[in-house]
Design a protein around this nucleic acid. Structure first.
Lengths: 328, 328
DNA sequence: TTGAAAGCGCTAACAA
DNA sequence: TTGTTAGCGCTTTCAA
């Protein structure tokens, strides 16, 4: 069934009595060709099922038509899910540009996977997923001069970055809570080494205004979160804002144990919505982003960079404050 | 800082006063070369930081040095995590063989991503992750004649497959429970359309022997699982075996609600261990597999196929029965 | 508007 | 053991 050999552009040219270059031009649309011949070629290609060899094209154009998708390999679940959705967006955008996605992971300061695909010239650019801590990847990419964009938060200056607008989102969430008349609100946050954590805290502070607050950061394990909840209640908070979905989940379990009723006794909100929160009742007021859109935009931005276009250094995407029963 | 142009094999050859082919041979180790010249070349390459262009090599060898990693794009969390670990294994094995991994997703009967990388010849072979339902991907790959292996369970015959030995694992788990003297055990299982579900049930039946059982399958949502738990208790079961980690999680929540004490009132075991079960007390007796190993082996197998070697049609990997407090 | 031919950087058959 | 040379399949000048 399989043809012995793959069809080449030469086969197409011969079959049509044309030259390779004419066929090439017909496919790419570059240069001058009569609409007539072009259509003829396109038709023939369609029916004969010819596919150009991307290696040959790449060699000739000095392009791989691949981008690298580089994410932490040892991450926790929620961020895994986030990246998965992001990747979907990247893939969709990539297909449209006739690009494919090469995946590699980094972690624990080990960026050898990134180095590999870079130095072997397997990609035209890289999308760097950031959720963890500082590593050398950005410095490395800069000195390599390979086009790249960062998706997610980074403190690094002078890099092209596509992110959710965490500050604005949290500011709005906090100000809504303030307008709802909360008297004292506890903010329970995670790892302060993460840039996103700082952004959320900042937004919260900006939005909450002069309402009394209690802030507890670096709650990186279940125990710390639970203790933070106890403190919040002891100090008379009537509202808890969780910095992310994981924290929110633990908070809810703790509140259940303590038989605190939401929202009657206490209002609850999360700065990040995810599947983790989906099945709880009452449903949780939370900030919602669109990871697929994030992925899509990051690819589009990267492609622009690859193609030598000017792009803005920082692109902040929108958000939704989804008000649910937990803050009624 | 960046060199204007990339170094080529020709540059290396000139610098060393050798020919391209000698350099090429030195790198690949193929053909005859004196150990002397070879070392000289290797040394120079090392210090001059030369990297061969994989596109050029690929074009010449008719290889891409890429494999496709094809997984469902719309999956639930536990399987996401599983694939993530698998992918780590694939990546590690791939690097050793100088391969990279192109990722694409399929879902909802849509295999266009797979078709894309196949027909555009962007990969030398494909690793197909199976956790969802029947789709056309296997049929498609067969007729394309592209090397591929399936990681995970499939009912499809005549494909090369790397999987955990679910049947044997569940058989052993069940027989251990039997020997522990359980009198009546409920098996709560998920989607019967999944091959793995059937395998686990089969293993359970084989291992549980003549102990009285109650089997409740297709518990695909929380409600069904909870009802299954009620039935189990109503019918006097002293043990529940959960077909996977997600089910086990719901069962535990339900048991907590019902104030059933584990293991005093009821023993509990899961046919699949994962992070989901990590934080519960008592810890859950469960079957443990090694997803990274699965990934690693699947790449190695695929590479063998690509290289035209004979491989066994079905490779079943080991497992561990990890006995914990929940069945004490 | 189309064709001829050089070149992308590498491998491998063939010569030396 | 090493060098010469002809491809791999495409793009892109340069000519016609």
């Amino acid at each position: 069934m399989d043809n012995d050999k793959r069809k080449t552009i030469e086969d197409v040219a011969k079959a049509l009595g044309l030259s390779k270059s004419t066929v090439s031009r017909s496919i790419s649309g570059k240069g001058r060709i009569s609409a007539d011949t072009r259509q003829k070629v396109l038709d023939y290609i369609e029916e004969s099922n010819y596919r150009p060899n991307p290696l040959a094209r790449g060699l000739s154009e000095s392009r791989t038509y691949n981008v690298g998708w580089v994410v932490p390999g040892d991450d926790h679940m929620p961020s895994l899910y986030f990246y998965q959705r992001c990747l979907q967006g990247v893939l969709r955008a990539a297909v449209k540009a006739d690009y494919d996605v090469l995946i590699t992971t980094i972690g624990d300061g080990d960026i050898s996977g990134l180095k590999r695909i870079t130095e072997n010239h397997k990609v035209d650019g890289v999308i760097l997923g950031r959720s963890l801590y500082k590593d050398d990847s950005i410095v490395y990419l800069k000195e390599q001069g390979l086009p790249f964009v960062v998706v997610g938060s980074t403190e690094e200056k002078g890099v092209i970055q596509v992110d959710n607008d965490h500050v604005a989102a949290c500011r709005e969430l906090a100000s809504i809570l303030r307008m709802k008349g909360v008297r004292r609100v506890s903010f329970i946050g995670g790892d302060m080494r993460l840039v996103v954590t700082g952004s959320r805290l900042q937004g919260f502070k900006e939005g909450i205004g002069d309402v009394r607050t209690q802030i507890c950061m670096d709650c990186t394990d279940d125990g710390k979160v639970r203790r933070a909840v106890e403190e919040a209640l002891a100090s008379g908070s009537d509202c808890i804002v969780c910095e992310d979905d994981r924290i929110c989940q633990i908070v809810m379990e703790k509140l259940k144990d303590m038989e605190v009723d939401i929202p009657a006794d206490l209002k609850l909100a999360s700065c990040y919505d995810s599947r983790l929160l989906r099945n709880y009742r009452p449903q949780i007021t939370a900030l919602k982003y669109d990871p697929m859109e994030l992925g899509k935009r990051s690819f589009e931005t990267l492609l622009a960079v690859i193609n030598g276009q000017e792009v803005e250094g920082r692109m902040l995407l929108g958000y939704e404050v989804v008000l649910k029963g937990s803050t009624q």
